[in-house]
Design a protein around this nucleic acid. Structure first.
Lengths: 176, 176
DNA sequence: ACCGTCATGTAATCGGTTACATGATTCT
DNA sequence: AGAATCATGTAACCGATTACATGACGGT
């Protein structure tokens, strides 16, 4: 593809996730991405697998990724970074942001609209406890594998939040 | 509109926010909704004002809201709940959910992809401190206005999370 | 050889975002 | 009266979700 028919596309958070993961892997198929997402960002929000097929296509159209199809039976699509993609990713990574999170929490939403906390709190507490345990298991795993420090930190941030949630819903279970 | 040409629509979290706020207000214009959002859910995630025009239309088409236009000069649209809307909202509120949050945090994302924490942490810390102060101000305000307990709780959950963030980024500022 | 699960993809739709535009108040 | 801000809306586009579908592989 010549630079002239490169389509102008928008880079969304999802785009950077894909670029970042491809960068970590060197080359990746959508399925590889799916696995990597499940082990990392997927812990905090879901990306449907179909988007891990469409987003790389978009990024390829924009000139950020390079797509190669295998020639063997499965003919999977293999993506890797172009120079442009590498640069865009590096720029994004190195620019600090003061943007805050977006938190969509159906439990808190229902609470705010007046659901009975006695009914809701136990269910949420249980779910958050499970999630907390999951994250702690991941942390243990990462430590064993000598995962880089910054990745560990992200999981630890998640653990901190889950602890906070557990405290919060525990209070409500007890009737505050 | 007769029930037969009621369009089948999906109720998303946004739908319930609109239904819930209309319920609290009795009647509301999109602009009223905008104000209410800013004072509540808006603290945790943004809803563009245009959606507070389109979503009520969708809900009206689905038979959940009733739309009346003022006859005076401004001819604003006034929405109120239909029986169907009231029922859908009540059902949603009273059904506990074990669904967890979705957290989109650009700061954590960059951290995970290896940004320099020394650069990022101060910026994030500052932003979270400001947000924390905001939420605390809202809490004070709500207490003075005798806001219902459950609404206070939501803000307090937010405060808990902001404190956690402040702890987290503080550690990183200090170089951990 | 068959069956279940893992893996790989496409199509259609729709909610949500961005951009554009203008009318009504309020303040100086 | 003019400027600035508040308020109100529409239109176009696109990223994201849902649903549909099939191919490959591993175990029994």
């Amino acid at each position: 593809m010549s630079p002239s028919d490169r389509k102008v596309i928008n880079l969304t958070p999802t785009s950077y996730i894909v670029l970042g993961l491809v960068s970590l892997a060197g080359k990746a198929t959508p399925y590889d991405l799916k696995q990597m997402v499940a082990a990392s960002v997927g812990n905090f929000f879901g990306i449907p697998h179909s988007q891990l097929y469409s987003e790389p296509e978009r990024l390829t159209a924009g000139g950020y990724l390079d797509e190669k199809r295998e020639t063997d039976g499965r003919r999977r699509k293999l993506y890797s970074l172009t120079a442009r993609g590498r640069e865009a990713l590096a720029d994004w990574i190195k620019t600090p942001t003061d943007e805050l999170y977006e938190l969509r929490d159906p439990g808190l939403l229902k609470l705010g609209f007046g659901t009975d906390p006695k009914k809701l709190a136990p269910v949420q507490l249980e779910a958050h406890r499970r999630k907390l345990a999951e994250l702690e298991a991941i942390r243990t795993q990462m430590k064993m594998n000598d995962a880089p420090d910054h990745q560990l930190l992200v999981i630890e941030a998640g653990i901190g939040h889950e602890r906070e949630y557990v405290r919060f819903w525990s209070k409500l279970v007890k009737g505050r």
